[in-house]
Design a protein around this nucleic acid. Structure first.
Ligand SMILES: [Mn+2]
Ligand SMILES: [Mn+2]
Ligand SMILES: [Zn+2]
Ligand SMILES: [Zn+2]
Lengths: 137, 137
DNA sequence: AATCAGATTATAACTATTCTAAAGTAATAA
DNA sequence: TTATTACTTTAGAATAGTTATAATCTGATT
């Protein structure tokens, strides 16, 4: 449970001015015990619900992009309808519950390391992402 | 190298009328030796280039959706900018070259089977997709 | 040939996202 | 402190991918 001074420092350290809006978004994204996954729309709703003063959509997009660029957030490719983000920036894989439209972390201990036996000349691996789609039994 | 009668049969067998437009799209999608990956925009350009009479975007979307529903195409989640489709409907994984915005098949022989050691109650696995992002060295 | 369900199309509508440019705010200098 | 400046926020416009609408057309069937 970080306090706001931590967020101010975090923002300053990465060259972002600690504005009211950014600090509030930090609280929501990084102030809880658990990491979580969200869409911009999700985040916008959480903000609306936890805050009196509203934050514009443009600022939410700007801030999420800035945090992505700083490595404070990760983007998850689930489908092409919207972008999903993850406050868990460690390397890990996901279940995607297609019925509930929900991402669930798969810990590295829960999946055998993915071994790719092929090289592409001139290219190096940037990331390996496993997406396990789940549906109701 | 199928001929058009094959496509007519394929369409009829799945309850789709073999129209001029659908047959032309079949030729492009399934008439070559190799499978490939495409976006709607890609397909639209290929059609424009290989055809005198143009096919409307609405028909291209309709047809791709119909083929998806019949299992003639697979949808690949790469990013949230647009949808990508695959004429290779077998179970397989992908490289994604982020610099060239291009998908490359990974054959099952080139990757160790992905083993997930976790169950989610009430859910079953629908698919397991590995996306290996590549960048220039 | 007549009929009719299904298909195509232009175009409007929709949604997620990005852009714009004006007004506001935080950092810094004086 | 105040002035200056660069960065930030914001409403709203613009864009892009996609889906919906409704008129027209076409292929299958009688
Ligand atoms: Mn959601
Ligand atoms: Mn492309
Ligand atoms: Zn996660
Ligand atoms: Zn493929």
């Amino acid at each position: 449970m970080s306090n706001n001074l931590d967020f101010v420092a975090k923002l300053r350290n990465s060259g972002l001015r600690p504005t009211k809006q950014r600090i509030k978004i930090c609280e929501i994204l990084f102030g809880g015990k658990e990491t979580f996954h969200f869409s911009i729309n999700d985040l916008s709703k959480i903000i609306a619900q936890k805050t009196n003063e509203k934050i514009s959509l443009a600022t939410i997009y700007n801030t999420v992009h800035a945090f992505l660029g700083k490595g404070y957030l990760k983007q998850i490719a689930v489908n092409s309808e919207q972008s999903y983000y993850d406050t868990n920036v460690s390397d890990h894989h996901h279940f995607y519950d297609v019925d509930k439209d929900q991402l669930i972390d798969i810990h590295d201990s829960e999946v055998e390391p993915v071994k790719i036996n092929r090289k592409i000349p001139g290219k190096k691996i940037k990331s390996i992402e496993v997406l396990v789609k789940l549906q109701n039994i």
